[in-house]
Write a protein that binds this DNA or RNA. Sequence first.
DNA 1: TCTGGGGTCCTAGGACCC
DNA 2: TCTGGGGTCCTAGGACCC
Length: 420
Amino acid sequence: MALIALVDCNNFYATCERVFQPHLRGRPLVVLSNNDGCVIARSQEAKDMGIEMGVPWHVHQQNFERQGVAVRSSNYTLYGDMSARVMSILQQHTNRLEVYSIDEAFLELGDDGAGAEHIARHIKDIVREWTGIDVSIGIGPSKTLAKAANRYAKRMATTQGVYALNDATDQQALLGTLALEDVWGIAFRLAQRLRALGIATPLDLRQADPAFVRARCGVVVERLVYELRGQPCLGLDDIQHERKSLVASRSFGKPIEHYRDMREAVVSYTSRVAEKMRHFNLAASHIIVFIETNRFNKNQAQYRASQNIDLPVATADTGRLAQAAVRALNQIWRHNYSYKKAGVMLLGLCPAGRVEDGLFDRADDAPSRARMKAIDAINQRYGRNTIRLASLGAQPQWCLRRQFLSPSFTTHWDDLVQVR
DNA sequence: TCTGGGGTCCTAGGACCC
DNA sequence: TCTGGGGTCCTAGGACCC
């Protein structure tokens, strides 16, 4: 069975900053979120000082600055660029690569344990030499075990950054020492639930009855049982999948109380997210706007709301999207609240050219009986709502709802042409 | 008084990840 | 005074249909 390696860049954002500012090496360093609100990355020295992930910077600022902690605002363009360099090196050493996040990737490394470890050490050296980024590598028969191995590689100096968790004895020994929350996919809530069921460690979970776990905690945790046993349930997702949603959201530096300010914010988020969408060459068929008050402020009246608008035609046009966004905002806006955050989410994404150039994205004359019949036939064949009649103002429009399409449908584009 | 059963679709919200 | 931003997947429940 093929072994999976998880390559994870150590202290990624902090290391990226250091590659270009070598004088920061050896000093504790933190990277802050937008608005410099809270800590989103730390160098090893900063971690050792006890600076926690996600803490609001203002709480500790004075204290830490006195101790010589260097601070940087985040620079995602730089991190994205460094990430691409690392990933392209990894790509050269495997047939299958899943880029899991900006600083992590899963690789398939063959089925020979010793061989896999050897390759992993080689990868680690090369990445360091070519990019200045330090990585840790965990190897195991499943993604979840590779994750656990990676943790161990990171924490134990004796591993020199690479650890293989291939045989059952090692797996049991390690899982017995971990907390439930150390398992990829288990956080506070699930850990609580599992403990209440008498499952106290990852080793207990590995040995639990999958059917029992499924009945109590659902299919996600059942999968983890198998994954911890080394029977992979989570495949390597190395095919570039299409994005399913895009978001632009922000916390406001100063809370918003007036409708006009909120409208301005929502329109500007819409324009930002629309631009991102066009970059991926996509169009959206739903737009959601959400607004909320400051949930940390216990003395304040709380309000959260979101509104989904179905667009009659999938579009990437900022004007149309902004119009819909304002309509959504109008439905949820309430006076007398102090709003702290808002966002715009685009859903039902589909390739842009197709629908925009499509046959149905225009106010046509009333559909003929023959056309109605043809459309009915398509809906019957490929599922209802593949094509539907929508209204924009008084004008009926035909639109293609690509998110309802079966995969086979795309090869039958000709059918649509006939409808016309 | 009796009070189906199975299916689909949609939505809201929970939980997790980085 | 001040607490990030961007994602995915799953579930439960309601509406509706036959």
